[in-house]
Amino acid sequence: MKVIGLTGSIGMGKSTTAAMFRDAGIPVYDADAAVHDLYDEGGAAVGPVGEAFPGVVKGGRVDREELRRRVLGQPDELKRLNAIVHPLVGRDRVGFFKAAEASGADMVVLDVPLLYETGGHANVDAVVVVSAPPEMQRERVLARPGMTPDRLDAILAQQLADAEKRARAHYVVDTGRGLEHAQAQVTDIIAKLRT
Rank of each mutant, 00 (worst) to 15 (best):
M1S: 08
K2E: 07
V3P: 03
L6S: 07
T7H: 08
G8V: 10
G11T: 06
G13Y: 07
T16M: 01
F21W: 03
A31R: 06
A31T: 10
A34S: 14
A34E: 10
V35A: 09
V35E: 08
D37R: 15
D37N: 05
L38S: 01
L38Y: 13
E41I: 14
V49W: 09
E51W: 03
V56D: 06
K58I: 14
G60H: 07
G60V: 08
R64V: 08
L67K: 00
R69H: 12
Q74K: 11
L78Q: 12
R80L: 01
L81N: 01
I84Y: 14
H86W: 11
H86T: 06
H86V: 02
V89I: 05
A100T: 02
E101S: 01
A102S: 07
G104P: 06
A105L: 01
A105I: 03
V108A: 01
D111N: 03
D111Y: 04
G119R: 11
G120T: 12
H121T: 11
A122G: 05
N123Q: 11
A126V: 03
S131L: 12
A132Y: 12
P134I: 01
E135F: 00
Q137A: 06
V141R: 06
L142R: 09
A143S: 15
T148E: 04
P149T: 06
L152K: 11
A157I: 06
Q158V: 04
D162Y: 04
A163T: 13
K165A: 05
A167W: 15
R168I: 14
H170Y: 07
Y171H: 09
D174V: 13
E180C: 00
E180G: 13
E180R: 08
H181L: 08
Q183I: 09
A184I: 04
D188K: 14
D188T: 15
A191C: 11
L193W: 14
